[in-house]
Simulated assay, not measured.
Amino acid sequence: MNILMIGCGKMGGAMLRRWCDASNHSFTVIDPAKPDLPQKVRVEADLSELGGEIFDMIIVAIKPQMIEAVLPDYKNSLKNGGVVVSIAAGFALRNFSKILGDVPLVRVMPNLPALIGLGATGLYANTLCSSGQKKTVEDLMEAVGRAFWVSSEDELDKVTAISGSGPGYVFQIIESYIAAAEKLGFKPDEARALVLQTILGATEMANRSDEAISALRESVTSKNGTTEAGLNALNANGALDTLMRETTDAAYKRAIELQ
């Protein structure tokens, strides 16, 4: 496919580099900053430099607040039957339709680990998308991690609250965990290495296992042992469960507000 990307910041650039390696698509980027990208990517500063060329797919990778001002200029850059893909958070499909009319549209919610090919990306398509178009978008997103289709934009907002914002929650937990290790007397570099390897090992173990997470937790928790003592403090009276529900609920409500 002949694909145009509008804007190419850190996330868009990282995804594009992986797409270049994983596909035979032709990519053109419009970005005034003219970012440094693989040689096979055509990079232009302005739409006027395309000479009226039209594309099979347009990927919208600019900030949501810029879309209403920028996107109308690209309305004639999409082939008949082409598909528009948005990685701009919080800009609903109905708002794209107001600008572009009735065209196939896919909203994509990637998360930060897509930068290293370990993303968790939510996908939602309108009813005008063909199965082939959905498969093409899915393949692109699988190149940067795992792709998860949802059945509504509301579910995509929930994906935002879980995986989109999720790395921030995990980084906060890691930060607090490292601080606790330092409080016990470990040097900062020792605390960081111990905590990160512990989380990496536990996560990978869970990823490779078919057992319930609760069973894995129980397997390391001896009665009256150190892990049980720690867990009793960590989740006393379900405090951690409540905190995680409140965290994801707050993010979900904010995702709705931003639309």
Rank of each mutant, 00 (worst) to 15 (best):
L194N: 00
R245Q: 13
V41H: 09
G168H: 08
C8D: 04
Q133F: 07
I54F: 00
T227L: 07
C8Q: 02
E142D: 10
T28G: 06
L115H: 03
G238L: 07
A114I: 10
D21H: 09
L4K: 12
A212D: 02
E211G: 05
G166H: 12
C129A: 11
L231G: 06
G164E: 02
K98S: 08
K134M: 15
E257V: 14
T221I: 11
T247Q: 14
S222V: 10
A233M: 13
L156T: 11
G101S: 09
E53T: 13
I67D: 04
D56A: 11
K134V: 08
N95V: 02
N24V: 12
G117F: 13
S163R: 04
Q133E: 07
M66Y: 04
K134E: 10
N207D: 06
G13Y: 11
C129N: 07
L37C: 05
D157P: 05
K134N: 07
G132P: 08
Y124L: 03
G101V: 05
L47I: 02
P110F: 14
A125I: 09
G12D: 07
E155I: 11
S151P: 04
A215R: 11
N207Y: 03
V195G: 01
T160V: 10
F27Y: 14
T121C: 12
A147H: 13
L105A: 08
V70C: 13
L128K: 09
L258D: 05
N76M: 08
V41W: 08
S86A: 10
T127G: 06
A181Y: 01
K75T: 13
Q65N: 13
I199M: 14
K187I: 01
S97L: 10
K98W: 00
A33P: 06
N126C: 05
D189R: 00
N80M: 11
I67K: 02
G90T: 09
N232F: 01
A233I: 15
L37K: 13
I87Y: 10
A92T: 09
S165L: 05
T226H: 03
D102H: 11
K63G: 06
P64V: 04
L71E: 01
I162V: 15
T127N: 13
K63Q: 11
T203A: 15
G164V: 12
D21K: 15
N2P: 02
T248L: 15
M141N: 09
P35Q: 06
G7D: 09
L240W: 14
K183D: 02
Y252L: 14
S219E: 00
D139M: 05
D21A: 15
L194G: 01
E175A: 10
V43G: 01
G168W: 01
I3N: 07
Y169D: 04
K75N: 12
I58M: 14
V144K: 09
A14K: 02
G52F: 07
